[in-house]
């Protein structure tokens, strides 16, 4: 993903739902835009603001955070923590001069390969329009 002419999207996927959803998309041979790289965590609630800002700092154009549907979290309520955190992050991003649309939160279950495909394609299309980050994010 070195080339700066193509979109760079990092997808943080939880082990139980979204990572399995990404696998399901592949298993069903659903074709997707390829400009994303998946990082697996056990739960979406592991993904903190620092990690997302770090990704922007290292050149990501957009970040997808995907977890289990509300009520389905393998760890009781981790996805609600993620939801609150992403809302907070979006307001923070504007003040850093980063478009909040560059971060997207989605609930994708293990059997929603179709939804994974749709989300990825839509998101990469939007990110392509936004292009690379306009200003450098300096780490605090």
């Amino acid at each position: 993903m070195k080339d700066n002419n193509e979109p760079k999207v990092i997808a943080f996927c939880c082990n139980w739902c979204s990572y399995a959803g990404a696998d399901a998309a592949g298993t069903s041979r659903l074709q997707m835009k390829p400009h994303f790289r998946i990082i697996r965590s056990m739960c979406s609630s592991r993904i903190d603001l620092e990690l997302i800002l770090e990704a922007f700092d290292r050149g990501a154009w957009g970040i997808l955070v995907a977890g289990c549907h509300p009520g389905d979290c393998h760890y009781v309520d981790g996805n609600y923590k993620t939801l609150r955190r992403i809302i907070l992050l979006k307001s923070l991003l504007s003040s850093l001069g980063i478009e909040p649309e560059r971060v997207r939160l989605e609930w994708i279950s293990a059997n929603e390969g179709g939804k994974f495909q749709k989300v990825v394609n839509e998101f990469i299309n939007e990110i392509e329009k936004l292009g690379p980050l306009k200003k450098e994010v300096s780490k605090q």
Partner: peptide
């Protein structure tokens, strides 16, 4: 789940096999 790691303000909390430096290296 790692929720405590994300919530920890001082980086004291870590999760084995999903250590923050590992996630950074993957990024």
């Amino acid at each position: 789940c790692g929720a405590c790691v994300a919530a920890c303000p001082s980086g004291a909390q870590q999760q084995r096999w999903f250590m923050t430096p590992q996630l950074h290296a993957m990024l």
